[in-house]
């Protein structure tokens, strides 16, 4: 597999740990112009492509009544536009090879617009809708398009989140399992039930609740 991330030191650690199993590439997903060429370089070095997982995402903390366009923009650049830059390439390739799996890591946070994280919620909603559209485009081409919607996972991004978090290894294993069937998937059964309810709370009620 190939691993792409910004922090070269961490990538090198990963590559050192995994040996020849991991090809590391230092890359910032907001460097959109470099994506098509890098996509071809990565697939060439891998000798093919069966599965791509878009996992890049940011969730900067915002205050309850803070409105900062620069932060909102950064969230959309990483969580949405970077996904489009990469997954468009994968969609073209898989559409023509008529095979393959595209996975994007969305979030339960994309299910509703909540007071605490307007841009983050909107970015994950946008990602889920984009992925739904890709799925509808590529289903007839035998391409498996998957959105997974984890809750909090024990990563540095969620360091400030107070809720119970899923260990990283467990989340990764569940994501790979869910990647086998097209559609939108929560990782845990309780999430499936809770968010079925949350998604259907009428807006006038939802805005009075503290969730």
């Amino acid at each position: 597999m190939a691993a792409l991330a910004r922090r070269k030191d961490l990538l090198d650690q990963l590559a050192a740990h995994e040996g020849a199993n991991v090809l590391p590439f230092a890359h910032d997903v907001t460097d959109y112009d470099s994506v098509p060429l890098l996509f071809q370089r990565v697939t060439k070095e891998l000798g093919g492509l069966d599965l791509i997982i878009y996992a890049a995402g940011v969730m900067p903390a915002v205050e309850p009544l803070e409105f900062r366009f620069d932060i909102d923009q950064q969230i959309f650049e990483v969580n949405v536009l970077g996904a489009m830059a990469w997954l468009d390439q994968a969609a073209i390739r898989f559409g023509h090879t008529q095979t393959g799996t595209i996975v994007a890591i969305g979030s339960v946070a994309g299910d509703r617009g909540r007071a605490g994280q307007p841009a983050y919620n909107a970015s994950k909603a946008a990602l889920a809708t984009f992925m739904e559209a890709l799925r509808n485009r590529l289903d007839r081409k035998n391409v498996n398009v998957v959105t997974v919607k984890p809750g909090p996972v024990d990563t540095p991004m969620s360091a400030e989140v107070g809720a119970k978090k899923l260990p990283v290894e467990q989340a990764a294993a569940l994501i790979l399992k869910k990647a086998q069937s097209p559609g939108e998937h929560y990782l845990l059964l309780p999430h499936r039930i809770i968010f079925a309810v949350i998604r259907n709370i009428p807006s006038p009620v939802f805005r009075r609740l503290n969730i």
């Binding site: 098509p36 996509f39 071809q40 000798g47 492509l49 073209i92 390739r93 023509h96 090879t97 008529q98």
Partner: peptide, 21 residues
């Protein structure tokens, strides 16, 4: 130099037991 990604195809031999792009 970029290759036109639209040209990529999954190809097999006559026996269809293996494939590559």
């Amino acid at each position: 130099v970029l290759l036109p990604l639209e040209n990529i195809r999954r190809l097999t031999g006559f026996g269809r037991a293996s494939a590559s792009d």
